[in-house]
Structure formats: C-alpha cells, structure tokens
Design a protein around this nucleic acid. Structure first.
Lengths: 194, 194
DNA sequence: GTCTATATACAGATAGAC
DNA sequence: GTCTATCTGTATATAGAC
C-alpha cells in the first residue's frame, strides 16, 4: 500500500507545471518551485538532474494530458461542425493562456529539442484530429469538396492559439470568443447546403 | 547639425527592442542590454529610470512601427481579399515570432498596464483595419451579407498570431503558411459568386 | 531522502569619481 | 554623460550532515 501523502517528487513536478504555465521557463526559478512544493534544495537535486530535467518531465506530462483530452473530445459523436464547435467552445481559463502554446514564446524552450518536442507533438496531434474530422465531413457531404482538411486544421489550431494571445493582450477573455465565433461562421460558409 | 554617431540612449533603446523580441521581458537583463549597446551601467540609469522604463519606451516604439505599417498596407488599392492576402502573405521572419504578440506570454508585461497598453492598442488597430476592409467588401457585394466584419477580423488576427505559435512550436515556418492558406480559402467560401 | 551550508555568477540598482 | 565600484538579493548547483 502506497502512502496517502503525495510524495516530494510528485509535488515538485506539479509545482513546476503550475509555474511553467504562470511564468514560463525562463521566469521559473528552482527557488520558486521549492517554495511552492514545500521542499528543500536537496530533494530537488536528489530526484532530478536540475531545472531543465524537471521542466522536461513537467512539460511532457502537460502535453500528454492535453493530447488525451483532444483524443477524448474528438472521439465523441456528432457532425464535424458539432465536434469542432465543442472543442473550440470547451471551457478554459483563457487569460492563463495555453499551457503548451505559451511555451513557444520561451527562447530557452524552443532552443532545447527535449523541451520543444512535446509541444510539437501536441500541435501535431491536434492538427491530425481536426484534419480527420474535416476529412470525414468533406467525404460525407457536410463540407464543400474543395475544402482542404489539413490547411483548415492548421487554421483552426492557429485561431485557438491566437485567441489566447489576443485575450491576454487585451486582458479580456471575450477576445478569444470573438475569434472562435468568426472561424465557426467561416466554416459554416464552407458547408454544403441542401 | 546632429552628430552622425547614434547616441547612447538610442542604442540602448534599439538593443532593448531586439532583446525583447529575442528573449522576452523576463529574459532580458540590464546587463545584456548594456553589452549589446556597448554602454556602461551609468548610461542606462542616467537616461532611463530602470529596466521597466526602458522596456516601455522600446515596446511603444515597436508598437508604433507596427501600426504604421498596418496603416500603410491597408491604405493601398485592391479588393478586400487582395488587401487581406497582401497583409497575411507579406514577408516576415516567422520563426522569430511577432515582436508584439510574443510579449503577451510574459506575465510581467501583462501585469504592468504601462507595458501591456501598446500591445492592446496594436491589436485593436489591426482588428479595426481588417474590420474596415471587410465591411467595405461586404457592402460592395464582394462578401456574403451575413459575414460579420468584427468577428472575422478577430479571427484573421488570431490566425496570424497563432501561425507564429505553430511555426515556433514545430520550428518550421511553413506551419504559418498552412494556417494562412486555410483562412484565405475559408474567406473565399464567404465570397459572393456572380 | 531530506536538510542546511556553501559557492559562483548574475539581476537590478545606487553612489560617486571623472 | 559616462565610467567603475559597490550593494543586496537571487539563480543554479554542489557538499556533506543527519
């Protein structure tokens, strides 16, 4: 039987995940991680090689969680438009930004292939899921045959990520919603009418 | 007659602009600014109150430049789609990211109204320009009357900002182009055919 | 495993000489 | 106006006691 108390390594990883989301990689110090986890220097360097190692594990976990949620949401029922709408309109803390997309602005993350890879894989996963749904929709007559599923999927992911950027820039979550409303309206124009 | 040699304050501002673009606000130290400008501590604190003051002036200038270019590009001739295409396809160093949009990920920037304001104003300016062009296009019959110019403008700015995010995440500028191609195709579906 | 002590370098700013 | 010296605190990591 495992201890009911969450162990120190686990608390360090979770604290790192929160801080990476709030402050980015450059802005997250080992000291702040230790303070949040309630641990001492020794614990961190016992369980992990250092800041980069801990960050890699934290980012990996966040990316895996996001991909799992994408898989779950797109596996559901509904037309292409319905599933895309559900994904774009799903509840989220817009002003916190995307825990994965936000890291792309961090030059130390982008420069380190170990840190960047989970980000790339997450975008790839999301794009693939969207492209799959769009292809389905096109092939069963929901969309105009001229619609390109992969380019359109890229556009939808970009609207999502750009929506976070606009919202944070204006300190107003509604900016995200406007961008989503706009892309859904445009997608509607690409639908085949009977 | 002014000295031909660019003065120290000017070099400090330009160095700060570059570093903010490359490393963000948190990641830019006074030391790195001084090294790039070839100046000593004393010069910086003589001309500016400190890092935040210098950053504010640098961000203001970058934002103003961007807005001026937006005004210039949208004042040109052409249909709505042509002008929007020209803006989205204009040459840019995609992998460096947007010098304004990238700052939205920086929590210290977003938390300081003085630093955030020029970002908000720049997005507002871009959205207004796009909305103006889209309204024109809708009113002269280029677009379907059901097209909402302001939501669509938000979407286009989001695609732009999100395109940078995707490109940096994949370390591949083509990701930006895919997203742009997708939104232009969707806009085409909203056009009125004769 | 976890703690505290310690080490080197840098962040960010001030003081005062020239 | 610009420089160097100096200051307090933090970043990141290692050492070694318990």
């Amino acid at each position: 039987m495992y201890s009911r108390r969450v162990d120190t390594a686990e608390r360090l990883i979770e604290s790192t995940r929160e801080l990476l989301w709030e402050r980015g990689y450059i802005g997250t110090s080992p000291k702040s991680i230790l303070a949040r986890a309630g641990a001492g220097q020794g614990s961190m360097y016992h369980h992990f090689k250092g800041k980069a190692d801990l960050a890699r594990i934290a980012i990996d976990r966040t990316a895996r969680e996001l991909r799992a949620e994408v898989d779950r949401l797109f596996a559901g029922p509904g037309t292409a438009v319905e599933r895309i709408t559900a994904y774009l309109r799903r509840e989220r803390d817009v002003l916190k930004g995307c825990p994965i997309g936000g890291l792309t602005q961090d030059s130390d993350v982008i420069a380190d292939p170990e840190l960047r890879r989970p980000i790339e894989e997450t975008f790839q996963c999301l794009r693939d899921s969207l492209a799959g749904v769009l292809t389905e929709g096109r092939d069963n007559g929901e969309f105009d045959p001229s619609l390109d599923p992969t380019d359109t999927a890229s556009t939808i992911v970009a609207v999502l990520q750009g929506g976070y950027v606009l919202a944070r820039g204006a300190n107003d979550a509604a900016q995200f919603d406007h961008a989503v409303t706009g892309i859904l309206a445009l997608l509607d124009h690409a639908r085949v009418r009977q």
